[in-house]
Write a protein that binds this DNA or RNA. Structure first.
Lengths: 125, 125
DNA sequence: CATAACAACATATTTAAATCTATAGAAACG
DNA sequence: CGTTTCTATAGATTTAAATATGTTGTTATG
């Protein structure tokens, strides 16, 4: 067990009329509490989703796609990105399940999978 | 002007019965469209907010704070973090306006500023 | 089927975030 | 007031994301 940490908790609990021998139990309680709020897998999933939104270029792409679908070269033109960089961001959004792509001849068009995502964005701003 | 890009747009538009001389106008239209969906400042703000949520440790902290406030040493204990690392993540959340801190004697307690944030998180999972 | 055009991918570089180590600041307490 | 305890910050290191360069895959077209 981590002795230093237990001492620290003991001092904290002594302000709360806890008995000294309860400290070990309190530590286990805290760790169980941390487990109970959610499993690692679902937190990882949320992390990936929020990471996809944590970039102003991608947020702007999403807001544009709210109005209409765009092909890669239109995204390049609109946001002044290199072809590779535009593809990179669109791929990030696709892997997060936010956009989907449709090939039409030589062109690949991107559109929103769930338009609800823009509601979520608008809640923030 | 970016000649390569204009040629690319021209070929795209030629599939849509656009006149050739409209390509320059279409490029400007795309760029204006990109501006209209939102100003850089507000996208940067959203980016900061989503960045704060884009980490599974911080998401777990938020979910714990939904139930009750915690001091730094409790966060350390619950999530098995170093003191510095716990402070770092709590500071990130504070600067994003998600949590606030209250000093009580030697201890600093953190709590949610807007509990709505957990609704937003639950929408994802 | 050879070539041109659009997009994706692989790899390297740059830039930013997360973590660690060491130290400083603030409150409590003898 | 000197010491201990809790938290924050500074600086260095590690790790991951964003961007750039060069190349490949895919579709259309002469």
């Amino acid at each position: 067990m981590n002795g230093e940490l237990e001492k620290r908790l003991k001092r904290l609990l002594s302000c709360r009329s806890y008995k000294e021998e309860d400290v070990g139990r309190y530590l286990r309680e805290l760790r169980r509490f941390a487990q109970e709020v959610g499993d690692e897998e679902s937190f990882r999933k949320m992390e990936r989703f929020f990471k996809a939104l944590a970039d102003s270029t991608r947020l702007r792409i999403i807001k544009m796609l709210e109005n209409r679908e765009l092909c890669v070269c239109e995204v390049m033109a609109a946001l002044d990105l290199t072809q590779t960089n535009a593809s990179y961001h669109l791929n990030m959004l696709e892997r997060a399940g936010i956009v989907k792509k449709t090939r039409r001849g030589k062109w690949v068009f991107y559109s929103l999978v769930k338009p609800e995502v823009t509601r979520l964005i608008d809640q923030i701003s």
